[in-house]
Write a protein that binds this DNA or RNA. Structure first.
Length: 950
RNA sequence: GGGCAAGUGGCGGAAUGGCAGACGCGCACGGUUCAGGUCCGUGUGUCCGAAAGGACGUGGGGGUUCAAGUCCCCCCUUGCCCACCA
């Protein structure tokens, strides 16, 4: 870009920016400016110099290196954390800030499949491109700590952590994870029985075979294989976690249909930690909305498990949050997948069954089989659409309401979900709208057990009220409120052995395997008995084999079977090992870990990225993340990222961290002490008549309408993206304005937690600010420093120190837009007050130092021009002198009846009487008061005076 | 359907219950310039007024208060999350 001939030769331009930015980036790299020493180990050189400083660990949610590269929306949070980190360095903190890459997983693999290149190559190329783009932004990261989850040196430890989890179990009494060896020892010693639901053999431990014992132990592990109903996505050729499936039953990635299928998969027992994951939210400095989203996701409900006897034999357990309504339970419902259905289904319909209950089938079995088939085929979307019409079929047998002794029919219906509670409910149509709807559809009795408020009719009553119709020979709830009735009912149920208080969660165990190539292989092999066996640590890493054909086997057939690509690695799958029972041939696990695995612990690896003896040195972890006071969870001091990770990533990473804590590998109980959710950069996108996106930068606006040539376009607002043709890349901004201007602009458009629209034409405002600041220090015509070595007038001192106070506050609270506005005000004050130059050097230096976190290259350059050869990274951030924050006199508004009518100047310490005298002396006020009587005078010293007239 | 958050100039946004609209973009006028604008200056909520000044004004309606963008109640709109969770 050529500069106009009359532009002063030394003006701050895009070219100036480019020159100094590249130079300073090289110098920072050469001098290791942002190398952050650890207290011990490989990266400890230089720690002596920082030993007394308070530590601060700042972390960004690391990016997926996509093929499209960065657009200007991506680095918003990275810039924010860099500004904060630089600010805190200047405040004497020892700051750790690094950036890695989430390199395994579907996006990287799909990009590789699309481009026909190996994901190892595309991922490496994409990471290089990201590193280049981010370096050009001037981020003060310690480059030695940049890891990628797909590096062997990294995923070796991901596999190691998997082994830790696999080799652990959850001790319910102690509420913590413990090594599996301790469980085995206790089982062997007879001091512990297998946990509930873990022993399918029903024999004493001593009588079990080695293989049977292994199976019982496996059922305790925090990582386990389970044949459970999972989300099978043939379009992606893999199964997905519940969290990766959208509400309308499609894949979060790719939007392919997802089917519920029973399949054997790796699971992680995150549900064991539900209570701690829930309780410890209270100890975290996270936003209430994120905590609420996690609480809702965990979904803890308290109530009772009640057992209903049946005529067919087996008791049916139900979970209810409303045990107080048991007298109103007039029928029961089992989920279509419930295991007891077969046992409850008689060969013939009982006499007198209504037609509507049988669906016209000749026998209960026939009816139920047909219903189960239909339910399985309905998509999630159909279930939702039809949610209002309740469907179901009678199982053909009856249960007994333990409170009333009444015979009540058992139904199968898909409005009851197998995955929640016990997969069966007691239906109380009087107090539950879903049960009401079903009861109406199937002509079942409705008994109200809570007195509705007056005039309420025709629907289930879920509100508060006195219990009615709720008494038997040994229990009388009538008249009690809901809470009292619940307690009384639970006590009674316990007494008669029909129920116990219980807690249920919406959270399910985490589906942890994927049938994809580009992920961490499991450190697991299978022997002849088909049971999974962990590899010993010294066989790590299990390297991902190089494969020509890595693509997943996708299908449009929902009945297709998963075929992991690793199954085609014929040389890799079989392996001869001695795992303690002599050398044998084993087969490797063919699944890989999900994308989340690598991001579940990267904040720990940044701490000690080169350590090949442990995943992180405990002393290094304690230094950066350990608790600082009694009750502190420890963790990263500030974690910044988008709200889209509110439940998935942030729940998984907390879970892994707690396992590592329980096993004594880390001293912190939580990974992230403080979480800050940044907003997004949004942009307009334009579509033509045929619905195709057109280049946003070619669109013209006329009369509030949008055109490409003569063609009118439709405008939409949302994400920025290459496919939406509204992307702006940082590279374009570097070329046109420079990195400092881009940084300043992004930080200026709003507070960090808010989304903001991108507007390229507004970027120039930030460029102008840098030009003006530059001009404060440098003569544009001669490149000479134009500050004056002069004392600072008191007026300037007042403006300066007020600015310092406000800028500090803005930086501290991550409201960089305010900090920039205040810097702008100071700059404007200086450029008008010192139009011919001669800004006192002390003021200019303060201005440069305040600019430094935001626009570090320009600030470094100005700092050196002001005669300081060393980088300003460690210069002290200016501190406001309280003496200059107060004026001798203040201008205060004078109100009459609450409306400002004038202002008067009074001494800053004027008392109420002094203020009133001054206000009454004002001509305008006198005129307003003339002829009225003053009923009351409100004076707020130093702020305001208000005359209230009668 | 439930929960959460938010509604302020043409636009992004500022305002410990105390002068609404800081700061920036845009726009207008003026300067510099042969010209242009990534330059400089001034102005810029709406309405009435030549001005001084006045009236109105923070999604809508009520309330508390000397004083409300800010606190309380009801409603509307938008965004996000969850959604047959017993």
């Amino acid at each position: 870009m050529t500069e106009p001939s009359d532009t002063p030769p030394y003006r701050y331009t895009a070219e100036t920016a480019r020159r100094i930015e590249l130079a300073w980036q090289d110098r920072w790299a050469a001098e290791g400016t942002f190398h952050t020493p650890n207290p011990t180990g490989a990266l400890s050189a230089g720690f002596d110099e920082v030993v007394g400083r308070p530590k601060l660990y700042i972390n960004d949610m690391f990016p997926y290196p996509s093929g499209a590269g960065l657009h200007v929306g991506h680095p918003l949070g990275f810039i924010g954390t860099d500004v904060f980190a630089r600010f805190q360095r200047m405040n004497g903190h020892h700051v750790l800030h690094a950036m890695g890459f989430d390199a395994f997983g579907l996006p990287a693999e799909q990009y590789a499949v699309e481009t026909g290149q190996h994901p190892r190559l595309t991922t490496a190329a994409n990471i290089d491109n990201y590193r280049r783009q981010l370096r050009r932004l001037g981020l003060g990261h310690d480059p030695r700590r940049s890891v990628a989850t797909a590096d062997v040196g990294y995923y070796r430890w991901t596999q190691w952590i998997f082994l830790q989890i696999f080799n652990s179990w959850f001790d319910i009494a102690a509420q913590r994870g413990r090594p599996i060896a301790e469980l085995i020892a206790e089982l062997d010693a007879g001091s512990r029985e297998p946990g509930p639901g873990t022993d399918p053999f029903g024999l004493p431990w001593a009588e079990l075979s080695a293989s049977q014992r292994r199976e019982v132990v496996n059922n305790h592990r925090l990582a386990y294989l389970s044949k459970a109903t999972v989300n099978w996505c043939p379009g992606l050729g893999t199964v997905l976690a519940n969290e990766e499936v959208t509400a309308d039953g499609r894949s979060d990635r790719g939007n392919f249909p997802v089917y519920r299928r029973p399949m054997k998969q790796w699971m992680m027992r995150i549900t064991a930690f539900a209570d701690r994951l829930l309780a410890d939210l209270d100890r975290l400095d996270w936003s209430d909305s994120i905590k609420l989203m996690q609480r809702n996701w965990i979904g803890r409900s308290t109530g009772a498990t009640i057992t209903f006897g049946t005529e067919a034999g087996p008791g049916i357990e139900v979970f209810t949050t409303r045990p107080d309504t048991l007298f109103g339970a007039t029928y029961m419902v089992l989920a279509p997948e419930h295991p007891l259905i077969a046992a409850l289904t008689p060969p013939q319909w009982p006499a007198g069954v209504p037609e509507s209950w049988t669906a016209g089938a000749a026998s209960p079995t026939e009816a139920i089989t047909a219903y189960q088939r239909a339910a399985a085929q309905r998509s999630e979307l159909e279930r939702q659409v039809e949610a209002k019409t309740k469907t179901g079929v009678f199982a053909g047998s009856f249960a007994v309401n333990p409170a009333t002794g009444t015979r009540i029919p058992v139904f199968i219906a898909d409005y009851v979900l197998m995955g929640y509670g016990t997969g069966a409910i007691m239906a109380v149509p009087g107090q539950d709208q879903r049960d009401w709807d079903f009861a109406v559809a199937f002509d079942l009795p409705i008994v109200r057990t809570v007195q509705p408020s007056a005039g309420f009719d025709g629907a289930a009553y879920t509100g508060e009220g006195p219990a009615i119709n709720s008494a038997n020979a040994t229990l009388d709830l009538n008249g009690m409120g809901v809470a009292a009735a619940k307690a009384a009912m639970i006590g009674w149920l316990a007494g008669v052995g029909a129920g116990v208080p219980s807690i249920t969660y919406k959270l399910r165990d985490w589906l942890f395997s994927r049938q994809r190539y580009w992920g961490e292989p499991f450190p697991i092999v299978y022997g002849d008995d088909g049971l999974p066996q962990p590899l010993p640590e010294d066989l790590l890493p299990v390297e991902l084999p190089d494969m020509e054909d890595f693509s997943p086997t996708t299908s449009e057939d929902e009945n297709s079977e998963p075929e992991p690509p690793l199954g085609r690695a014929r040389d890799w799958v079989p392996v001869r090992l001695d795992l303690g029972e002599g050398e044998q041939e084993y087969r490797r696990e063919l699944n890989t870990m999900p994308q989340w695995a690598g991001s579940c612990w990267y904040e720990l690896r940044y701490l000690d990225p080169t350590n090949d003896a442990v995943f992180v040195d405990p002393e290094v972890e304690r230094y950066w993340m350990g608790p600082r006071f009694v009750g502190d969870t420890g963790g990263v001091d500030l974690y910044v990222g988008g709200v889209e990770h509110a439940v998935l990533h942030l729940l998984y990473v907390r879970f892994w961290h707690k396992v590592l804590f329980d096993l004594g590998h880390v001293s912190s109980e939580e990974p992230f002490r403080r979480l800050f959710n940044q907003g997004y950069v949004q942009a307009y996108a334009y579509k033509d008549e045929r619905g195709r996106y057109v280049d946003a930068d070619k669109v013209e606006q006329r009369d509030g309408r949008y055109f490409l040539g003569e063609q009118e376009l439709r405008r939409e607002f949302g994400k920025m993206g290459k496919s939406l043709k509204n992307s702006v890349t940082p590279d374009e901004m570097y070329a046109e304005y420079g990195a400092d201007t881009l940084r300043l602009y992004e930080m200026f458009t709003g507070p960090m937690d808010q989304s903001r629209p991108w507007e390229t034409k507004a970027v120039v405002g930030s460029m102008r600010l840098l030009q003006r600041i530059w001009r404060v220090v440098v003569d544009e015509h001669t490149d000479a420093v134009r500050t004056a070595d002069a004392p600072v007038p008191v007026d300037t001192m007042r403006v300066l120190h007020r600015t310092i106070a406000a800028v500090r506050d803005g930086m501290q609270t991550l409201r960089f837009n305010i900090a920039i506005a205040k810097i702008t005000e100071l700059t404007n004050h200086l450029t008008t007050t010192y139009a011919d130059g001669g800004v006192p050097v002390a003021v200019a230096e303060s201005l440069v130092l305040m600019l430094a976190p935001l626009a570090p290259h320009a600030a470094e350059e100005l700092w050196s021009m002001l005669g300081h050869p060393e980088s300003l990274t460690w210069q002290a951030f200016p501190v406001a002198d309280a003496a200059y924050l107060v004026d001798d006199t203040v201008e205060i508004p004078v109100q009459v009846n609450g409306k400002v009518r004038s202002t008067v100047v009074v001494p800053a310490d004027a008392d109420a009487a002094g203020m009133e005298t001054a206000a009454r002396a004002d001509e305008k006020i006198a005129a307003h008061l003339d002829g009225h009587s003053v009923r009351k005078v409100i004076t707020v010293p130093g702020r305001l005076i208000n005359f209230v007239l009668t």
